[in-house]
């Protein structure tokens, strides 16, 4: 009986200790955060351990997420050339190419963008495809799935797989030969779902200027808040607020209002329709 009581007390003490440790940890984290001691500048490097942990996290996450992806045949030369045209248009700025450096903007990034000649040796094509398609959070790597078609993404992967084998001279020859190719843009007629539409609004950077219900962002006051959109009678104080007009406005605001600061964001028509449905549902 006495032993029982001791055991119970020991358990309670251990539990209390664990909770206290967690609370101290959270409290300590807040103190560090609020003190401003954490550097957010891109010239201070990560601790080696931090970098290792983040890198390992990326590898496990990508491996897990790309598990069910099956790569098509990636050896077709035409596909490789199409992939090179994507690489030329969208990748060289940050990743460089054999014998050529990345742009100045990319030189200043933390983390520094990988040389993809090495990435192609290290990662399976499914992972390369997945990272290209989905991007990597809190690095400079954007998601390309709303810019490049699925076929284009696989073509890019096909090109990446050849990258470790290219001399600068061979790369230049292929680059010249690829000039007649262009990277196939994303076209998306997929049916509406709220998840998809909020991803679209984010992927066309709407929340860099607008506050939108259901979207976490910089809480910007550059454009008007879209929080109760269905109640608005006019779009931009000009067009009656109907779904058709909204699609028109989203796709080409400056043709409706020459004085507007809202830019043409290159929104695909199917994408604009999904955005309009999302916005029109905001009460």
């Amino acid at each position: 009986m006495k032993y029982e009581i001791h055991r119970k007390r020991g358990f309670l003490l251990a539990a209390a200790g664990a909770i206290a440790l967690v609370l101290v940890g959270i409290g300590g984290g807040f103190v560090i955060l609020l003190s401003g001691a954490l550097s957010t500048d891109a010239t201070t490097q990560h601790f080696r351990l931090t970098h290792r942990i983040l890198d390992a996290g990326l590898r496990f996450s990508v491996r897990n997420s790309s598990r069910s992806i099956v790569a098509p045949t990636l050896t077709d030369p035409a596909m490789v050339m199409r992939g090179l045209s994507c690489y030329r248009q969208h990748c060289v700025q940050c990743h460089g190419s054999p014998g050529s450096a990345q742009s100045d903007a990319a030189k200043g990034l933390l983390p520094i963008p990988n040389s993809l000649a090495e990435s192609a040796r290290e990662w399976p094509p499914e992972s390369l495809y997945y990272i290209t398609r989905k991007g990597v959070r809190m690095t400079g790597m954007p998601a390309w799935e709303f810019r490049i078609s699925d076929e284009g993404l696989w073509s890019t992967t096909a090109f990446l797989m050849t990258l470790p084998l290219l001399t600068p001279e061979r790369y230049r020859q292929m680059e010249d030969a690829s000039l007649s190719e262009s990277c196939p843009p994303a076209r998306d007629g997929s049916t509406f779902s709220t998840d998809r539409a909020d991803m679209l609004l984010r992927q066309y950077a709407c929340h860099s200027c607008h506050r939108i219900e259901g979207i976490v962002g910089p809480n910007s006051h550059v454009g008007p808040a879209l929080s109760d959109w269905s109640r608005r009678r006019y779009i931009a104080g000009i067009l009656p607020n109907t779904p058709e007009n909204l699609v028109r406005w989203i796709r080409d605001p400056q043709s409706v209002s020459p004085t507007t600061l809202m830019p043409d964001l290159g929104v695909d028509e199917a994408h604009a329709r999904q955005m309009a449905v999302y916005l029109m549902a905001l009460k």
Binding site: H221, G223, A225
Partner: peptide, 20 residues
Amino acid sequence: GYVGPPLTTFAMNVYVAGKY
């Protein structure tokens, strides 16, 4: 009214009518 935009956070808005 909901004919024009709500003026709820006007002091924080970066532009007037998205134009100036």
